[in-house]
Nucleic acid binder design. Structure first.
Lengths: 217, 217
DNA sequence: CCCGGAGCTGAGCGATGGCTGAAGAGGTGG
DNA sequence: CCACCTCTTCAGCCATCGCTCAGCTCCGGG
């Protein structure tokens, strides 16, 4: 991410890390080429307004030297900026001020579109397809609500890793300091639907959180 | 698409995929014959400047071995190139640097001209012919208004994928931040006509959007 | 074996999302 | 200038969802 406002940079990078991405933040385009070569990003989040070289110049550098996706951050009324950015090959843009969850959603949408992320994840006999919003247990389709699906997607992205309820609250709801029971309620609902046609996949780790894992043997 | 600049390849392929096409990108003409036989493209987007065999040689191979359309990418001042390309049978050309939307438009224009566009899409027993604006449910013709047809075309191009109302608003109406009820009203009208003679095809996914999908199983 | 805290879940409610009929605005052709 | 048609807005309705709460169970430690 290239963003000179430190607060925004910190907030966004922690939200993206929560979602399972590796993130580097730089305040400007200084030695962009070197950074790109070193870090080899799949995607760059690019502020339009930057000290030194502005976002559009950096966009061209990125396009010329890498295959990375680009999501631009533009000011609310920067319609011209937006078109200019999309024209020159930005994959998407987000208007400031934005909700963190929206940025994260767009980032993963672009990555998916670029084929950098498998849109369908499999855990045991459970299939989660992000594009079509279809979830299958074996061959049986599972009907989920929007929140359940968001929760499942997050757990699927973190599969095999134990995630705390606090972590889930910030990643899925954007809440910072909240009643963990909210997570418990939705985990409960999710389990009822997921495990109706098969063994347990969503395990409780007492005192730590939850894991999505297929237990063989 | 044959394009050695990775950035351009990525941008174009994602734009074309958005428009509903299946795309493969190759950096050069290596084993072009094999690739053509395997992928059987309806159209090839061909960069003129390529390492190894240049675009014109590849153009001849394509013409000799397939019926595919060809759109060439030429440098700004390559007038000679352009004429040479058209002479030898390219269907159209786009000058670099180009606007993504223009390339997409030319690609679909060529496909339509060649009659290669599966200008007709089938979802279950629903037939949508984009050119003739004919829509059939089973054998029964369905009378749609202009807006309904645009909406249906978009959904058909994205079939199987859940599309949000916001996404529909920008794709079909060009609106940026608008009342989603507009979409709901037209979806409602579309359903009344489409589903008069058959089961539901245009499904609501609460909290996410709509999908055009034929449910078997 | 008992106790406390962690986790689970059914019930209830307010809020939201989605659908639709109706009416007005705009445009087109007769 | 009128009649018709399409598009859009609006408002009310309904179903469902998401959250809170409270009582319960379960598990592990002492």
């Amino acid at each position: 991410m290239i963003e000179d406002a430190e607060a925004i940079g910190a907030a966004v990078s922690s939200a993206l890390r929560e979602a399972g991405y590796q993130v580097q933040v730089r305040p400007d385009g200084r030695d962009l080429e070197g950074e790109l070569a070193r870090f080899r990003p799949d995607l760059v989040v690019l502020d339009v307004m930057l000290p030194g070289r502005d976002g559009f110049m950096l966009l061209e550098v990125i396009r010329r030297t890498t295959g990375a996706g680009v999501v631009m951050l533009t000011a609310r009324d920067g319609v011209a900026d937006r078109l200019r950015g999309l024209d020159r090959g930005a994959d998407d843009y987000v208007v400031k001020p934005f909700v963190l969850a929206e940025l994260v959603a767009r980032v993963s949408a672009v990555l998916r579109r670029l084929g950098r992320t498998p849109s369908t994840v499999q855990i045991g006999d459970l299939l989660v397809d992000a594009d079509s919003a279809v979830v299958l247990r074996g061959d049986v389709p599972v009907e989920l609500t929007a929140t359940e699906l968001r929760l499942l997607r997050y757990l699927a992205a973190q599969r095999g890793r134990v995630v705390g309820k606090t972590q889930i609250l910030t990643a899925v709801w954007g809440y910072e300091d909240y009643d963990p029971n909210l997570v418990e309620v939705h985990v409960s609902a999710l389990r009822r639907k997921l495990e109706e046609h098969g063994p347990r996949l969503l395990h409780t780790v007492r005192g730590l959180g939850y894991v999505l894992r297929a237990d063989e043997t």
